[in-house]
C-alpha cells in the first residue's frame, strides 16, 4: 500500500534522512523506532508531503505521490497525527473533528448551508469511540494533554484514511493512558481495516502491537523485521535498546 524508495532529506547540510526505503502492505501494523533525532518525524513529513524529499520517491497504492502537497495526499487516503499536539485550539472538540468530515467529504466550498449540525452523527460516533463525547462542547485548547492527544487521533480519523500515520501517539501520556490509547488504536485499526504506520518510544507498546518494525538510526534503516528478530538484532541492541533502557 505504501512504498518509500530511498528518500533523503538534508537540513543545511545535515542529513536527517539518508536514503530510507520501506514498504507497508495493506492491513499491516508497522512501527518505526529509533533514538531521538533518528529522523522518524522527518520521514513522516516526507511521506505526507509536508516536506519534499531531496531524492527518492513515495508511492501510495503504486501511485507516485512524491512532492504532492499534504492536502492532496490526505485526499488520496493518508491520514496523520502529530507528535506535538497539532489541533485547532480555539475550536471545540466537536468542531475539530467535524471540520475533518467537512473537508474530506468535499463540503468545504459550500458557502450557504448552515454548518451547525452538519455530520453530527458521524462526528459524535467518532468522539464516542475515542471517549471524548462528553467533552464535545469544550474548547479543545483547554483539554488535558492526554485528551488532546486523543483528539489529535480523532481529527486524523475524520478524514476516513485507509493508511494512518501516527507520530508517537502516546507521547507524554501516563502509563494507564498509554495502555488505553494503544488498545483504542488497535481496535479502530481492526474495525476499519486500516493500514497503520507509527513511531513510538515505548518499547512495550511497539512490541505488543507491531507486526513489523523498522529501526532507524541517524537517518538510516539499520534493521527491519518481525518484533522478535529486531529485538535480538545485535546492532539494534547496541545503538538503541541498550542505549535507552
Amino acid at each position: 500500500m505504501l512504498e518509500v524508495r530511498k528518500v533523503a532529506k538534508a537540513f543545511d547540510g545535515f542529513q536527517a534522512v539518508a536514503g530510507v526505503s520501506l514498504a507497508v502492505p495493506r492491513g499491516q501494523i508497522a512501527a518505526i523506532i529509533g533514538p531521538n533525532g533518528a529522523g522518524k518525524t522527518t520521514l513522516f513529513n516526507l511521506i505526507t508531503g509536508h516536506l519534499r524529499p531531496d531524492a527518492g520517491a513515495v508511492l501510495l497504492d503504486g501511485r507516485d505521490i512524491t512532492g504532492l502537497p499534504p492536502h492532496d495526499v490526505c485526499r488520496l487516503g493518508m491520514g496523520r497525527s502529530f507528535q506535538r499536539i497539532n489541533i485547532f485550539p480555539r475550536l471545540t472538540v466537536f468542531q475539530n473533528v467535524q471540520a475533518g468530515f467537512i473537508s474530506h467529504r468535499g463540503r468545504g466550498l459550500d458557502l450557504f448551508s448552515r454548518v451547525g449540525q452538519l455530520y453530527r452523527e458521524e462526528t459524535e460516533a467518532l468522539l464516542e469511540s475515542l471517549g471524548l463525547l462528553d467533552r464535545s462542547g469544550e474548547v479543545s485548547g483547554f483539554l488535558s494533554h492526554g485528551a488532546q492527544k486523543q483528539l489529535e487521533l480523532g481529527i486524523a480519523l475524520a478524514s476516513e484514511p485507509r493508511l494512518l500515520l501516527l507520530d508517537e501517539p502516546t507521547a507524554g501520556m501516563s502509563a494507564a493512558e498509554t495502555r488505553e490509547t494503544i488498545q483504542l488504536i488497535s481496535r479502530i485499526a481492526a474495525e476499519r481495516g486500516l493500514t497503520l504506520l507509527f513511531t513510538e518510544h515505548d518499547m512495550e507498546v511497539v512490541f505488543s502491537i507491531a507486526q513489523k518494525i523498522t529501526v532507524l538510526h541517524q537517518g538510516r534503516v539499520i534493521a527491519e523485521g518481525a518484533p522478535a528478530e529486531v529485538r535480538n538484532d545485535p546492532e539494534v541492541r547496541r545503538v538503541y535498546l541498550g542505549e535507552r533502557r
Binding site: H71, R90, L91, A99, I102, S103, F112, S113, S159
Partner: peptide, 26 residues
C-alpha cells in the same frame, strides 16, 4: 451566512492552524 457555512468553518481551521488544515485535506 458565509461565516456560518461549512466554508466559514474551514476558514477558522486555517486561522487556528494552517499546517493541520492542510492535513485534513484543505
Amino acid at each position: 451566512r458565509i461565516v456560518g457555512s461549512p466554508f466559514g468553518r474551514i476558514l477558522t481551521t486555517i486561522r487556528e492552524n494552517p499546517e493541520r488544515a492542510e492535513f485534513i485535506g484543505v
